[in-house]
Nucleic acid binder design. Sequence first.
DNA 1: CAAATTCCTGACCAAGCGGTCAAGGAACAT
DNA 2: ATGTTCCTTGACCGCTTGGTCAGGAATTTG
Lengths: 217, 217
Amino acid sequence: MNPARANRTRKRTRIQEENEERILDAALEVFSTWGYRGATVDQIAALAGMTKPNLLYYFRRKEDIYLAVLNRTHEMWLEPLEHLDAAGDPSREIAAYIDRKLEMSRDNPKASRLFAMEIIQGAPILGPVLGGRLKRLVDEKAAVIRSWIDEGRLAPVDPHHLIFMIWATTQHYADFDTQIRAVLGAEATQPAHFDTAKQTLEQVFLSGLTGRTGNAR
Amino acid sequence: MNPARANRTRKRTRIQEENEERILDAALEVFSTWGYRGATVDQIAALAGMTKPNLLYYFRRKEDIYLAVLNRTHEMWLEPLEHLDAAGDPSREIAAYIDRKLEMSRDNPKASRLFAMEIIQGAPILGPVLGGRLKRLVDEKAAVIRSWIDEGRLAPVDPHHLIFMIWATTQHYADFDTQIRAVLGAEATQPAHFDTAKQTLEQVFLSGLTGRTGNAR
DNA sequence: CAAATTCCTGACCAAGCGGTCAAGGAACAT
DNA sequence: ATGTTCCTTGACCGCTTGGTCAGGAATTTG
């Protein structure tokens, strides 16, 4: 397993740092749109403003680029759920979780689409993470939600599927952005409809889970 | 614009009918997993049990296969929303809509993933449909929902975003099937967790929109 | 059953793909 | 400024890709 020539270097240089970042930015853009097989190294190199052999000086193989960009975004992806606090107020915690996920969809839609593509393709790389760390994290937080339900502080719903619902609704705004823009039409530009989305999600989830109404009309 | 040789034929033969169907089935499988660029004609041909030149006898170009398979599934995709009936009971109508969408995710996950890939890639083909027929349909049904809200029969939420929420939560079970299986683990096989999903969705949506609780615990 | 038509295939092609390499240019330490 | 290390590139390679084509095998038609 030969490292890229750039990594045979004594220490990390400034140019290395810069170029690897440019490559990963470009790779995120390209992989998140075309998927692993649909993306080409030439495309990534062009978007990063360099020649293909130059790119391959930093990442020896296409797969290495993919792994690197998945790794770079992977933590950010798991993080929001980790902050769900068993000691907090259920409604507030769930609302805050929805907010964090929605912000991720707005600020980093490419990362969301990258994971969407990876999972639709059967999660060839992320598979072990899904059944490992992610499963453990979800099971842990599902137990928290279940305890809230048992204490009568939340309507009785299946905690795992509640988490799926929150993932689905929030990530939808990143993954299906094209469709949302087309359906909303000119009426709504991006920053505006995210606020409406946030209100709608919190309204439905919170009153659906606690009986209380979130935002009055 | 030369048609495929099979279409230069006088009338549609039995063999044509059969083979085109086999090709479209295979194409749905392959395109829904790999996207347009990631899919190869060889792959589709192999899955359809024929040679590549034989496949190209029926569809002259890769793009023609993609268009045909999108067209074939396109109606099915729009249909569930069309049945939302302004004259019906709001809760019942929304529950029925969720059911139909969830059934589609269970019975035809590949079609769902095909559209997901197409939209993530910026809807190069479906774009006009999204801003055209789909937008008109959604606007029409959003008006129905708004009238229900104005009559006080539904909590005040943005109708467009409510529809997005239903799309997101139901399609999630098709598009992210891999992730759901990984997270649920061995505990849940497919037919079983769809029931739980249905109950959870209806509970959250219905009590979130009407104050009433869907299924008691 | 033969003639017309439809169906199928191996061989092939140009273009695009991921990846290599030798060699020249920049950047840097001393 | 000079030797050393790092960076960049054009030319190239073998393989896969979408697509063609001539001709033979099946099937349908009279």
